[in-house]
């Protein structure tokens, strides 16, 4: 009885949505960002609904599968796409498909049905295998050998390597992205972290496919809209979720200059420019300068595609990971997000 009541209450909660952006979606899908019935979350562990937006060819599909399996039960998946005939990774095989401009209604319905037990929670799509076989192996049956060797509980331990300050501690090789906050579509970072500092970095853009686009930027105001979408993403990264929602609402259509200026004022007062100063400097311009440029409604709206991935990778080396994320977010990297503006302006 009590359980049923809790489930009914849970069904009315704002839906925590994790969005995986694929090809042809541009930046943060504003339609999902400002609706009070939804709540965009930054980790799949916090979500009940996975919205896969756009195209997911090849490796991008594999990444979606991984994230899909990390959502806790009850979980459901929605494929929001303009191209139903495109590649369909395993995670999306049984997903409901939305092709219209506003998927919010479908997300809310899916969440309600999941909470009330009307539909079954999504099953896992990847095999239930550890990263490495370990059971029953090694000195203690947990896969480990000696002090540091083997694969205890399925993974090897990190090994030491040199560091710039003379303390050779462990290096962690990781592949991060593409579905991290602040990351442009399809971007993936192959990094080696020592402590929280990036020691080595290589940036890669996964294949985003081609076809019809989901985002519909207004050709006349495309630049301004893009800037606001970018701003929404950046504000979310900086812990200013409420301001991000405000920016997303403005980004829906061609924004009025007055409301844009009001938002810019709030952002300036938040201390965000100060927090970003000195981070990610390329050609004498730091993240703060890139932020301020976009805050100014009178600035020219043409956007260059931004620096090459190699140059960004060079800047990431030596920063701590939090700053690296800010750096990545601050650019219009030559992925889908820049392409969207260029397309809209063409």
């Amino acid at each position: 009885m009590a359980v049923a009541a809790v489930r009914r209450l849970a069904a009315t909660a704002p839906v925590p949505v994790f969005v995986a952006r694929g090809g042809g979606t541009g930046l943060l899908p504003v339609e999902l960002a400002f609706d009070a019935r939804l709540r965009l979350v930054v980790s799949p562990r916090h979500a009940t609904v996975l919205v896969a937006a756009g195209r997911f060819p090849g490796p991008l599909g594999v990444a979606v599968d991984r994230v899909h399996d990390q959502l806790p039960a009850p979980r459901g998946t929605l494929w929001w796409t303009a191209d139903v005939d495109g590649d369909r990774p395993a995670a999306l095989r049984d997903a409901s498909v939305v092709t219209d401009a506003d998927p919010v209604g479908s997300v809310v319905a899916l969440h309600r049905d999941l909470c009330l037990g009307r539909i079954r929670s999504d099953a896992a799509v990847l095999a239930d295998d550890p990263p490495n076989r370990f059971e029953g192996r090694g000195d203690h049956g947990q896969g480990g050998e000696g002090m540091m060797g083997g694969v205890p509980w399925g993974r090897p331990m990190a090994m030491t390597g040199d560091d710039r300050d003379g303390l050779a501690l462990d290096r962690l090789p990781v592949v991060l992205g593409p579905f991290l906050p602040g990351f442009p579509n399809g971007l993936r970072v192959h990094a080696v972290l020592q402590g929280d500092v990036v020691q080595e970095a290589k940036l890669e853009v996964l294949d985003l496919g081609s076809g019809p686009r989901l985002d519909r930027l207004d050709p006349a105001a495309g630049g301004a809209q893009h800037d606001l979408r970018w701003l929404a993403e950046a504000l979310r990264l900086a812990g200013l979720g409420a301001l991000a929602v405000r920016a997303a609402r403005l980004a829906r259509a061609a924004p009025a200059p007055a409301s844009r200026a009001a938002l810019a004022r709030l952002v300036r007062r938040s201390g965000l420019p100060a927090a970003w100063s000195g981070v990610g400097v390329i050609d004498g311009e730091d993240a703060r300068a890139r932020l301020v440029r976009r805050l100014d409604p009178s600035a020219p709206e043409g956007r260059s595609p931004g620096p090459s991935l190699e140059r960004v990778a060079e800047v990431l080396v030596g920063q701590d990971w939090s700053d690296a994320v800010v750096t990545i977010c601050s650019f219009d990297l030559p992925t889908d997000r820049a392409e969207a503006v260029i397309e809209a302006q063409a």
Binding site: L169, P173, V174
Partner: peptide, 14 residues
């Protein structure tokens, strides 16, 4: 959770 990425090793380290 690494945003769809992977790690080869345990996160616990020196």
């Amino acid at each position: 959770f690494l945003g769809g990425g992977i790690s080869e090793t345990h996160a616990w380290s020196r």
